[in-house]
């Protein structure tokens, strides 16, 4: 008696979103018509992509373990981006404009624009630009950057339910991609996409950030919300079928389990490997749950996740090999 394993077919599929335009080498994500990584029964025209995070200032609280690969480049975003793309193999770069936050120096929108320009000049890969976080400053910084580098298909991170109009407008006007952020909540994720759609954003220009809980720190919430978002999308929900982005590095590298040394907790093993394992486990779980864009901090983590993805998608992007 042989098994009748029917491939699971779905009415919906994930939107294709192209990151980067103009002088960027564009990269498209999404398009899959099955559960994440279920390459044995569905078509995936594009594989998940991996980004590395660079910062506009010397990040005050990064651990030595994540500083070491960026020795001499922290706070030099263009140089760090070049190394990330050329040497570490990042598919794209996330420039974290943390220095624009009022508590971290409060760099001006114009200074932020200079950093963005330097990174755009240094690399050809698509660029995610992360603002200082919700509040008026976020809009000032990202709107300035969006206007100045129109046509580059920047990924602007991020708009939320309470504050979406400004960034929606500049995304439409200047041809960028907008990240819609929601607090680990399926319904709010959909609500933000509906609100964006109501102000005439084409959802082919939107990524959903479901908010990442790191391993041991809410990962299970993010994981299940992402699975539910993906199921809704495959079920045909046009307001939940944007590809998802997860900011893994920043969640992972602040938790107790990566900060404590082996000397303090001998049972926990080698601190550096443990930290990278933590980042890989978080990233991979979320890719299984549906992440299409994953932002990491440690280049070794990127190399390890990339190796799995390379083997997975070795037979070409479309893997319907049944």
């Amino acid at each position: 008696m042989s098994l009748k394993l029917q491939p699971k077919k779905w009415p919906g599929k994930i939107r294709e979103v192209t990151l980067g335009a103009g002088n960027r080498q564009p990269r498209t994500v999404g398009g899959g018509n099955g559960l994440p990584l279920h390459t044995f029964e569905a078509d995936f025209p594009h594989r998940p992509v991996l980004a590395l995070e660079v910062t506009d200032i010397n990040p005050p609280r990064w651990l030595d373990i994540v500083r070491e690969p960026w020795e001499g480049l922290l706070g030099k975003p263009a140089d760090a981006a070049r190394k990330a793309a050329e040497q570490y193999g990042a598919d794209l770069i996330m420039l974290n404009l943390m220095g624009t936050h009022p508590d971290r120096g409060g760099r001006s929108p114009d200074q932020a624009a200079i950093d963005v320009e330097a990174v755009l000049d240094a690399v050809r890969v698509p660029l995610i630009v992360k603002g200082p976080g919700a509040g008026a400053k976020q809009n000032d910084v990202l709107a300035r950057v969006a206007e100045k580098y129109h046509g580059e298909g920047l990924v602007l991170h991020s708009a939320c339910q309470e504050d979406y109009k400004t960034l929606a407008a500049v995304t439409v006007a200047y041809g960028h991609v907008l990240v819609s952020e929601s607090p680990i909540d399926l319904n709010i994720a959909k609500q933000v996409d509906i609100l964006l759609s109501d102000v005439n954003i084409n959802l082919d220009r939107v990524l959903i950030d479901p908010l990442t809980g790191g391993l041991g720190y809410g990962l299970e919430y993010t994981y299940s919300v992402m699975e539910r978002i993906r199921l809704a999308a495959l079920g045909g929900d046009q307001m939940l079928n944007s590809p998802m982005i997860c900011l893994v590095g920043e969640e992972v590298w602040k938790v107790k389990e990566v900060k404590v040394s082996e000397r303090q907790e001998p049972r926990w093993g080698d601190q550096e490997t443990r930290g990278i394992n933590w980042e890989v486990a978080t990233a991979w779980s979320l890719i299984e749950a549906g992440a299409e864009v994953v932002v990491l901090r440690h280049p070794d983590s990127l190399a390890r996740v990339r190796k799995i993805l390379d083997a997975w998608f070795a037979e070409g992007a479309s893997n319907n090999t049944r």
């Binding site: 001998p266 049972r267 926990w268 093993g269 443990r274 394992n277 486990a281």
Partner: peptide, 11 residues
């Protein structure tokens, strides 16, 4: 070793 077990257990 511990650096793998701890993430496994936590996951």
């Amino acid at each position: 070793a511990g650096e793998a077990w701890l993430p496994y257990w936590t996951l």
